[in-house]
Design a protein around this nucleic acid. Structure first.
Lengths: 135, 135
DNA sequence: TTAAACTATAAAGCTACTATAAGGTCAATA
DNA sequence: TATTGACCTTATAGTAGCTTTATAGTTTAA
């Protein structure tokens, strides 16, 4: 299978595949005489794994770490679980931060309506004066 | 006031101040004979405004937009409010996406415990097989 | 006087791609 | 046969918002 077919199969762009190869996340495939990359089903699985990890919000470094565990299948999987736990708490703290932020933004927005001039805008005044309900 | 004092006052790094100047968010200050930047209180207010916007999650482009409104104080502030409304809905959709993600991650995590080998790890199996509870 | 602390510019690094440029290869068509 | 279009190659730059590094000049305190 050539790069375009693999890309279509997994739903990524061809450059993304080359990028993953360059980053060491996908093993370099064999080449045809003309230099074209030739992929196997294994590559397809590897690429799909990477994409699912990305959808879960894992960084390329974390994916690399997971791959290193896969290469040594008889160690205990505590590290895998720990990585996921860390990621979950990271996601949770992001959610919390965004919820705080949303409240600040909504209260800032409530301090103005559309019938004013910029000079008297409650939103701009709120930002300028730092009325941002810290924490 | 020199750049280091301004930086300490507002709580940013000196490079960040130079960066904002370069990006057109802070007006270029006067220079001493030796080339050192000299800042006024106005610069301090401008920088604080930028930082508060950044804390609210606004992009530099959005900040630039807000500044352009400030330069024309007698137009109606509908555009300011609209910018904030857009930002609020952006934040809300981020929250929703992260909440969906959190559920996926938690259910993935529940499919394993620490007493397995990598080979049998429920987390890795879940990612590899794509059991990711779409949507 | 010398060293620490400050300032300056320019350029590279970070993440995870995406886009662009310039070119080689291949199959089908006129 | 010539050429068009779709595909492939590499290399490089751009995105956001800084941070880091390199290199060098200036000021200040000991």
């Amino acid at each position: 299978m050539r790069i375009g077919q693999l890309a279509q199969l997994v739903g990524v762009e061809t450059q993304t595949i080359r990028f993953y190869e360059q980053q060491g996340l996908l093993p370099p495939p064999d080449r045809q005489d003309n230099g074209y990359r030739v992929y196997t089903e294994k590559h397809g699985e590897g690429l799909a794994f990477i994409r699912r990890c990305r959808i879960l919000g894992l960084s390329l470094a974390e994916i690399h770490e997971l791959q290193s565990y896969q290469d040594d299948p008889h160690q205990p999987c505590t590290a895998v679980n720990a990585l996921l736990d860390d990621h979950i708490s990271h996601v949770r703290s992001q959610i919390t931060a965004l919820q705080v932020l949303e409240k600040q933004l909504v209260s800032l927005r409530a301090s103005c309506n559309d019938d004013r001039e910029v000079e008297a805008c409650g939103v701009l005044a709120g930002i300028s004066e730092g009325n941002m309900h810290q924490q």
